[in-house]
Amino acid sequence: MAKHEFALIGDSHAGTIGRAARERGIEFGGGPIASGKEFYSEFFEVEQGKLSFVVEDTIRVYGELCQLWGVDCIEDVEIPIVSTIGSGFHFPAARAVWANFRDENLGFPQDFIAGPMCQSIFQRMQAPMLAFHQHLVEQGKTVFFALPPQRIPDSAWGELFRALQNRAVSELTKIGCSVIDVRNDTSDKEGNLLAEYCQDNDPIHGNTALGKKMLEVAGL
């Protein structure tokens, strides 16, 4: 087995990084283990210091990734871990979730997002993904968290997507994760991903050009 330079784990956004690494000829192992929605629930447990997933499908894929990495569990991985777990901010920002909080103008009341109720909901929503990364850092792992492509599908609120993202960056940095942030180089004035970095025929994901930027920024 070739020596891997990093281990990749995440939601579907991990595919952007993995494909870019393949095109770059970088030896790595891993990819998505579930779609992003899963990571906005209690998706893992830690028992006797070892992490395990709770959804059957994810357990299977995680087992295959561990085999690929040549370890019994992610705690034994000795190379940098690149994660996109929890980066699917369009799921917690889904319009359907927040429909009852809108005012008569179908927007959010002033200061709603910065207010205690919304922040409390954010905290509950992001607690599992933050705990996941915190566990890895506490095990002495080098953890990179890649921000998602700045693409907000019609099904999600842009303000909430960005607020959730900002909060994640802040909290993950406090935990000790390195955040892979290529927004300055890949976004337009409004903060949306430039067309040249968008996956064709897809409203959410980035292409390999974006993945390559991420790898460059991470020094991988």
Binding site: D11, S12, A14, G15, G18, R19, R22, G31, P32, A34, S35, G36, K37, G88, P153, D154, S155, Q199, N201, D202, P203, I204, H205
Partner: peptide, 19 residues
């Protein structure tokens, strides 16, 4: 153009299809 979960599931399938 597919949306939401389907897009993400397809992205994952596509990824492993090219592995």
């Amino acid at each position: 153009v597919p949306m939401g979960d389907i897009v993400c599931e397809d992205e994952i399938l596509e990824y492993y299809g090219k592995a």
